[in-house]
Design a protein around this nucleic acid. Sequence first.
DNA 1: TTCCGGTCCGAACGAACGTTCGGACGGACC
DNA 2: GGTCCGTCCGAACGTTCGTTCGGACCGGAA
Lengths: 200, 200
Amino acid sequence: MLAYDKRLQHLLTVAARTYAERGYQATSMRDLSKASGFSLAGIYHYVSSKLELLYLIQDRCFTQVITGAREALAQAGEEPEARLAAFIQHHVTFFAAHMDEMKVLSHESDELEGTMRAQLRRRKREYANLLHELLDQVPEAQISRQTAAWALFGMINWIYTWYHPTGPLPPEKLGEEMSRLFLTGYTAPVSHVAPRITAP
Amino acid sequence: MLAYDKRLQHLLTVAARTYAERGYQATSMRDLSKASGFSLAGIYHYVSSKLELLYLIQDRCFTQVITGAREALAQAGEEPEARLAAFIQHHVTFFAAHMDEMKVLSHESDELEGTMRAQLRRRKREYANLLHELLDQVPEAQISRQTAAWALFGMINWIYTWYHPTGPLPPEKLGEEMSRLFLTGYTAPVSHVAPRITAP
DNA sequence: TTCCGGTCCGAACGAACGTTCGGACGGACC
DNA sequence: GGTCCGTCCGAACGTTCGTTCGGACCGGAA
C-alpha cells in the first residue's frame, strides 16, 4: 500500500499549493483535479470530502511543527533565553521550508468544524503551551506572558504575507532577527523602557 | 441624498461584521440580504458587485487608519521613539475599536483584482511608508528596518485572531505592551543582545 | 479461466451561487 | 391629474459547486 500513501501525499501537496495560492474556499475540487492529475471522482478515493482534505493538510503540518520544535529544544541546552531562541529559530525556518502548508495552517484556521476543528484546536493549545513554558523560565519579563506569546506568534506567522525564502534574506537570518527582536524586547530590564506615550 | 449614504453605511457595517464572522467567500449575497434587511436585488442599488462591497469596506477602513495615524503623529512631539510609540498605540486602539473592518482588511487582502487591488496596494504602501520613515529616525537599530517593519505589522495585525476588546486587557494597555515590546527590541543597544543560537 | 477487491473515472444530481430583468411603489414637479 | 425618477423587490437566469453513482479496468488468488 506504499503507492497509495505516495499518491495521497501528492494530492495533499498539490492541494496545499493551490490553497496557498488561491485560498481554500476559492479552490474547487475541479481545480484540484486538474492540478493533481486525478479525475474529479478519483480524488474521493483518497479523501472523503473537501473539508477532510484541508484537515489532513493542517493536522500533518501541525504535527511536524510540534515534533520539530521538541527536537530543536532537546538540543538547545539549559539556558532559558537560548531555548526560546531555538524555538523561534525552528518555527521560522520550518515556516520558510513549508510555506504552502504553513500559510494554509495560518490563514485557513477557521474553516473546519466539529471534531476536526476540535482536534486542530488541541494541537494549537499543545504548541502554545510549549511556548508558554519557555516564557515562564525567563525572569523579569517587562510585559505579560500572554501578550508576549500572541505578539510573537503574530510576528512569526505573518511571514506568509510577505516573505520569499529565495529572496535576499535567508531563513536562518530571518529567524535570527526575529529572535533578537523578540528576546531583547521581552527580557530587557525594565530600566530600558521606551517612553510611555498615551494616545490623546 | 443623506438617507442614501446612511443606508449604504448600514450595508457596509453589516457586511463587515458578517465577513469578519464567516469570511468573505463563505458569505453569500443572500446572507447579507437577511442580515441587512435589504432584498437580494436591493443590495445592487448600493454596490455593483460583491467584490465592490469588499473593496468599499477595505478602502474606507484603510483611509481611516492612515488619517488617524497622521493625526496621532501630529500630536506626538519630536522624539523618534515617542513618535513610533504613538503610531503603534494608534494602530492597536483603532484595531480594537474597529475589529470587524480591520479583520476584513487584514484577512481578506488577497481577494480583490484589477483596479481595486491596485488601489488597495497603494494605500498599503502609503501606510507602510509612514512606518518606514519613523523607523529611519531611530538610531542604532539592531535588526534591519525591513524585517522590523514586517515583524511589527505581524504583531499588531495578528490581533484579530485572539484579542477581545471587552476582555481583561483594555486596548490602551495592549497598545502599551506592544509598543514596549517592539521599541525595546528594536532600539536596544547592541550590547544587550540575546544569545545567538544557530539551529543544529 | 474465473472471480474479486482495489483503483479510478465519465456523467450526472440537486443545491447554491452572483447577477439581472421587468415592474411596482411613492413622492416631486409640471 | 399626469409624468418622471429614485428606490426597491420577486422571480428567474445561467453557471458552478461538492458529491455520488454505476461501471470500467486490472493484477492476483482460486
